[in-house]
């Protein structure tokens, strides 16, 4: 049973990674990173649950980590918004092209 969990979570992690690599939009990249971090925390909970340690301790850890990663994601999204204000697009390749033209 627990192996099924681990396989599922690993697939989720890889989906997140694929989103980060394949999507040109910065917002989607950030969402992909969110999926990766979420699945990592899920793995922590699943591991603790399967080992019979109970989930109280890892839940507190996961909550703290969610707050920390939430702060990073919020900052990243603010930056995307500002860049969109400058360049009118939120795609990394496009921003890079426009910046080269600026110079």
């Amino acid at each position: 049973m627990s192996n099924l969990f681990y396989t599922f979570i690993t697939i989720l992690f890889l989906i997140g990674f694929w989103i980060v690599l394949s999507q040109p939009s910065l917002v989607r990249k950030i969402a992909g990173l969110g999926v990766m971090q979420g699945s990592s925390l899920l793995m922590l909970l699943a591991a603790s649950f399967a080992k019979g340690h109970g989930v109280a301790y890892p839940v507190t850890l996961a909550l703290t980590a969610i707050i920390a990663t939430g702060a990073v994601i919020a900052l990243a999204l603010v930056l995307v918004q500002q860049l969109k204000g400058f360049y009118g697009t939120s795609e990394l390749d496009e921003i890079q092209r426009l910046r080269r033209m600026d110079q």
Partner: peptide, 27 residues
């Protein structure tokens, strides 16, 4: 702004791998 965003994306990628690694060790 672009540089900060690049840094944050790489750092988040690193963090995601790091937590996954920590989960493996905790397991």
């Amino acid at each position: 702004l672009e540089a900060a965003l690049r840094y944050l994306l790489m750092s988040m990628l690193g963090s995601a791998m790091l937590i996954m690694g920590l989960a493996g060790l905790y397991m």
